[in-house]
């Protein structure tokens, strides 16, 4: 798993690539928590290059969404596809975390 961050207009876009599973998700969790602790209120998780997400990965995404919500912020998801998209659909997470087809649209929704 690799994480790339990019901040534009107060929106932090975090692109995650590779596999997000029990082994790699603690790293993303740490990253998300520190980004939120820095006071970022608007996050976009770009999953365009994410190949796989396990329940542990889902938990980290959910935890991030909940955490930022407590601080009146919002976490958006962008570019869900394939297996990842299926997992979000099956688990119903797509109904509780706003998802967008493109990073751009997620970005615009935030600004």
């Amino acid at each position: 798993m690799e994480i790339q961050k990019k901040k534009e207009d107060n929106i932090m876009v975090i692109a995650v690539s590779g596999r997000l599973d029990a082994v790699t998700s603690p790293e993303l969790e740490k990253e998300l928590l520190s980004i939120i602790a820095e006071g970022n209120k608007s996050l976009v998780l770009d999953f365009a290059k994410l190949d796989y997400i396990s329940s542990a990965g889902l938990r980290v995404v959910l935890a991030g969404a909940k955490k930022i919500k407590q601080q009146q912020g919002i976490l958006r998801l962008a570019c869900l596809k394939g297996v990842v998209k299926e997992v979000f659909e099956v688990s119903g997470f797509d109904s509780i975390i706003p998802c967008f087809d493109t990073a751009d649209s997620a970005f615009k929704a935030g600004s």
Binding site: L58, V90, S91, G92, F93, S95, I96
Partner: peptide, 25 residues
């Protein structure tokens, strides 16, 4: 509640994915 939908294997041979209920985990 957000689980992989089970399959129904009909005796006749058809395989159906059970319909969802729109639930989240």
């Amino acid at each position: 509640a957000g689980h992989n939908p089970p399959f129904i294997m009909r005796k006749a041979g058809a395989l159906e994915k059970i319909q969802g209920t729109g639930g989240t985990a």
